[in-house]
């Protein structure tokens, strides 16, 4: 019986999934924050479609 395949009931070698999940989480929240901050700097009565980057200041 191959113990590493069946019978142990434990997950081995899952660090890769953990790293991917945490990396994705940080990329998304930092990305959301940076996007929001960049757009808020250019806002004011500026155009809706300026995307915030390089908007009128």
């Amino acid at each position: 019986m191959d113990e590493s395949q069946v019978g142990s009931g434990m997950v081995d070698g899952a660090w890769g999934y953990v790293i991917v999940v945490y990396a994705a989480t940080w990329v998304v929240v930092v990305g959301l924050a940076v996007r929001a901050l960049l757009a808020s700097r250019g806002s004011g009565p500026a155009s809706r479609t300026d995307g915030g980057v390089g908007g009128s200041t």
Partner: peptide, 16 residues
């Protein structure tokens, strides 16, 4: 915090 930052930007645009 992100919602509030976005809210200010969006509100300015919508009001304009």
């Amino acid at each position: 915090a992100i919602c509030v930052i976005r809210w200010r930007t969006i509100l300015a645009t919508v009001q304009a």
